[in-house]
């Protein structure tokens, strides 16, 4: 708890991740999830919402950051990018659950770098169920490349698709998954 990761460290991991370094990217997401958890829990306290909702939001934010990571400009600071997305997702959550920001102040600039490592909490989102909501081709691509860990070449050979078609399917699949997540969360809360 409350270990602070510096902007520079996170930015370096992000840039490596953008270049395709999976280990750096995994390390980044672990650190970010701890920071986001602390941020969302801190915000949700005002609304009597607990760790499960916080975990939903952590996952939705991570998914959003992943599918929109091309919008991060390497010349800019990384932390403001992260918190702009986190804050956007939180305001969106309030809108969906019809709670007013007047009920509680939304911190414009949250205290950055506070971490909460209680990763044992499960979100209310079910991966199998989410996968069931996306088109078959995209689901198969996610299953083989992202879950079974086959390389793109192996997945292409297995399905008879071209490698670029597999990549496109994975890319689209993640976008479908992000919007399925969004819909599921709206569903839970209403």
């Amino acid at each position: 708890m409350s270990v602070r990761s510096s902007e520079l460290e996170l930015q370096a991991l992000m840039v490596a991740g953008l270049d395709g370094d999976a280990n750096a990217y995994r390390a980044l997401l672990v650190k970010l999830s701890a920071q986001l958890r602390a941020y969302f829990k801190g915000q949700l306290v005002h609304f009597n919402r607990g760790p499960v909702e916080a975990e939903d939001l952590v996952q939705e934010a991570l998914m959003a950051m992943h599918t929109r990571r091309h919008t991060y400009d390497r010349a800019q600071l990384f932390t403001p990018w992260v918190y702009a997305i986190a804050r956007y997702k939180f305001l969106d959550y309030l809108r969906r659950t019809k709670r007013s920001t007047k009920d509680a102040p939304i911190e414009d600039l949250p205290e950055m770098g506070i971490e909460d490592d209680s990763a044992h909490v499960e979100s209310a989102l079910d991966l199998e169920k989410l996968l069931g909501l996306i088109p078959l081709k995209a689901r198969q691509a996610i299953q083989s490349v992202k879950l079974d860990g086959l390389s793109v070449a192996e997945a292409a050979a297995q399905t008879g698709m071209s490698e670029s078609a597999v990549k496109v399917s994975v890319h689209r699949g993640l976008k479908f998954l992000a919007s399925a997540m969004h819909k599921e969360m709206t569903h839970h809360e209403n």
């Binding site: 991740g17 395709g20 370094d21 999976a22 990217y25 999830s33 996952q59 998914m63 990763a119 979100s123």
Partner: peptide, 14 residues
């Protein structure tokens, strides 16, 4: 779903 699972999914074959 645990967040670890999602992180694993997102960073596999990045």
């Amino acid at each position: 779903m645990k967040t670890e699972q999602l992180i694993e999914l997102l960073s596999t074959n990045l």
